[in-house]
Nucleic acid binder design. Structure first.
Length: 355
DNA sequence: GAGACGTGGTT
DNA sequence: TAACCAAGTCT
């Protein structure tokens, strides 16, 4: 009969491994250093929500260079934050980032709350992020449960209840193995383990420091945990985007409504996105249609955006709110990826058919 | 509880 | 190719 790892042994084994193998990441204090800046921890945690380390790294560097403190970030213009976030996705995070920075600057004297409840009350900070910042930045014991921890814990204890129903049991198990000391290291060690060894597919059990503690390791298929229900297929949608260019090198950009998809971001004027979008151009002009639509996959649907190009006079005024943006500085407009790609194909079309 | 909410990399 | 997945939050 195998003796399952005690909670203490699991934490000890994991932290010993972490002491040697911790990933060096830009938002992590160097080994042996206790210098954790809550601002940098918080910023990294927001950026890392549903986003890979590789994608976050350049954005973290850019943000911390431009806005080194929460006060600096709080003083930034909305448009500058949104443009700097462009391409990282989940733009509600950028809106909440600014709201949170301003709340900390104005209501907390620029000092982040040091406990989970205080953090949880801030915009964009949910249960995971509050626990992570409390543990990593403030050394508080907190039960930090993200998708990595869910997977590691489900395997350690062979929890076979499907997600999301398994969440309470997983959380309770995570609570049991969370140590009273080094809570921040423990949380990051669990996430490192999930990201590098206890991966969703083909976990590297052979080099796992917890394999002797792991119930799933003793089954035929450790990767079968956690059990998940199948997701439904994404619908396909169609849409039209309108590239309106002036001979003096400007394009007409709008800003999308603050809420909803790509909310608050600059964009090309576009139709609704549906099975049968309205294809009426925003203004009378000689429109050319780019032959290949821009394909883009969002979280809950995929889109084929047909791009239409028109060259209009310098004096023309498209309908509605918007601004003429200089083509030479298009990168600074901070277009989300869909519209950046639409701009690419539109400009290629303009090149080809220039008068 | 379930759906909205981006993007890019991997399988 | 299509599906799956990533340090989740909000409604």
């Amino acid at each position: 009969m195998h003796v399952e790892g005690t909670p203490q042994k699991i934490a000890e084994d994991l932290l010993a491994h972490y002491d040697v193998h911790a990933r060096r990441l830009p938002w992590r204090a160097p080994p042996g250093s206790n210098a954790t800046d809550p601002y940098r921890v918080w910023l990294s945690e927001i950026m890392l929500q549903q986003t890979t380390v590789a994608a976050v790294a350049p954005y973290f560097a850019k943000f911390t260079a431009r806005w080194p403190t929460v006060q600096a970030l709080a003083a930034a213009e909305d448009a500058d934050i949104m443009a700097a976030w462009a391409g990282l996705g989940y733009y509600a995070r950028a809106r909440n980032l600014l709201a949170c920075a301003r709340a900390v600057a104005q209501q907390h004297d620029g000092i982040f709350p040091g406990d989970e409840d205080g953090l949880r009350a801030l915009p964009g900070v949910g249960a995971y992020t509050a626990a992570a910042v409390a543990a990593i930045a403030f050394g508080r014991r907190a039960v930090v449960v993200d998708a990595n921890v869910e997977r590691v814990v489900a395997r350690l204890f062979a929890i076979d209840t499907p997600l999301p129903a398994a969440r309470p049991a997983i959380r309770a198990a995570a609570d049991r193995i969370t140590p009273d000391v080094r809570a921040g290291d423990f949380a990051q060690a669990m996430m490192d383990l999930g990201a590098t060894i206890c991966t969703p597919r083909n976990p590297a059990c052979g080099i796992c420091p917890l394999r002797q503690d792991c119930a799933a390791f003793r089954t035929a298929d450790p990767a079968a945990f956690p059990v998940k229900v199948a997701k439904k297929a994404k619908p396909h949608r169609l849409g039209h985007g309108w590239w309106i260019e002036r001979p003096d090198g400007h394009v007409w950009l709008i800003r999308r409504p603050a809420k909803g998809l790509l909310g608050g971001m600059r964009a090309l004027p576009s139709s609704d996105w549906s099975d049968a979008p309205t294809a009426a151009p925003p203004m009378a002009a000689e429109w050319k249609t780019v032959s290949q639509p821009v394909g883009h996959v969002f979280t809950h649907f995929s889109l084929a955006l047909t791009v239409h190009v028109a060259h209009v006079a310098n004096e023309s005024i498209p309908p509605g709110e918007g601004e003429w943006w200089p083509l030479a500085r298009l990168e600074e407009a901070g277009l989300p990826t869909l519209f950046r790609r639409a701009a690419d194909v539109a400009m290629k079309e303009s090149e080809t058919h220039a008068p």
